[in-house]
């Protein structure tokens, strides 16, 4: 191990090092912020009037809808990261993609589970194979596929590029999920918040929903940042292990 390659290695780590410092500073305040927002949103949600048709069951909306939004937003974040890997070749892009997938799969799973729990009293069944539910289920499978892919390939660079391609192809599913309730006749209710003609949901319900949604979004980015930091550290450990093995080699020779 000569001096020049050592310095070269540290220059290569410079960018992730700055990222780590940034992440260390941001994670705690973001976590606190998301907890405050979630607490406020949930309190408001329980204060909000019950739905005249659905009764108190409707309150599951305050977590179901944010989970569903985030499940899609996470894939959006991964798609941007995929572009970062393939087009701009940013060194942190494939870290961002790999770290986002497990968070996304949890949010999608929670969206499916809460929707299922909501559906049982409303529709009389846990699950129907309508367009919205099916497309979200496909999203769930795609997340698992990306996770399996990133874990199956040892070489980080190759795994990152492969996952990036799959992620971009999978992004086709996002508009399908969004517009599935409009394109097909489904049991799932149509969009109520993001519509061309404004939200159809009453403000007393809209506000808690927006606050919890914001809270979960901040939570997502907190988790994402923490996962990215873990991944950067993991790669650094891996590099150090290789270095340690080689240094030992040099000493014994």
């Amino acid at each position: 191990m000569t001096e020049t390659t050592l310095t070269g290695r540290f220059a290569g780590l410079a960018n992730p090092t700055r990222f780590l410092a940034l992440a260390d500073r941001l994670i705690l305040p973001m976590a606190v912020l998301s907890l405050l927002l979630l607490a406020a949103g949930l309190v408001l949600g329980f204060r909000a009037p019950a739905d005249y048709q659905q009764g108190t069951t409707v309150r599951i909306m305050y977590i179901h809808v944010p989970f569903a939004w985030l499940s899609m937003m996470c894939w959006g974040v991964m798609s941007v990261a995929a572009l970062g890997t393939l087009v701009w070749r940013h060194p942190l892009a494939d870290v961002a993609l790999k770290a986002a997938a497990p968070v996304g799969v949890v949010f999608t799973g929670l969206a499916l589970a809460t929707g299922s729990i909501w559906g049982k009293p409303m529709w009389g069944t846990w699950w129907v194979w309508d367009a919205r539910l099916t497309s979200v289920f496909v999203l769930f499978l795609m997340y698992l596929g990306v996770i399996a892919l990133t874990r199956a390939i040892d070489d980080a660079g190759r795994a990152g590029r492969a996952a990036a391609v799959i992620t971009l192809v999978g992004a086709v599913n996002l508009p399908i999920i969004k517009f599935s309730v409009d394109w097909w006749n489904t049991l799932h209710q149509p969009a109520a918040v993001f519509r061309m003609d404004g939200p159809t949901i009453h403000p007393t319900m809209l506000w808690p929903l927006m606050i919890t949604a914001l809270g979960f979004t901040v939570l997502f980015f907190t988790l994402h940042l923490a996962a990215m930091r873990t991944e950067v550290l993991r790669r650094r450990i891996f590099a150090m292990q290789r270095l340690a093995a080689r240094r030992e080699e040099g000493r014994s020779a």
Binding site: W129, T134, V138, L141, L144, I147, A148, R151, A152
Partner: peptide
Amino acid sequence: GGGALVGILFFLAVIATVP
């Protein structure tokens, strides 16, 4: 390499294609 994960994924995918 997450071989178990691939197995579950395959199972999920097979069941999802049935409907």
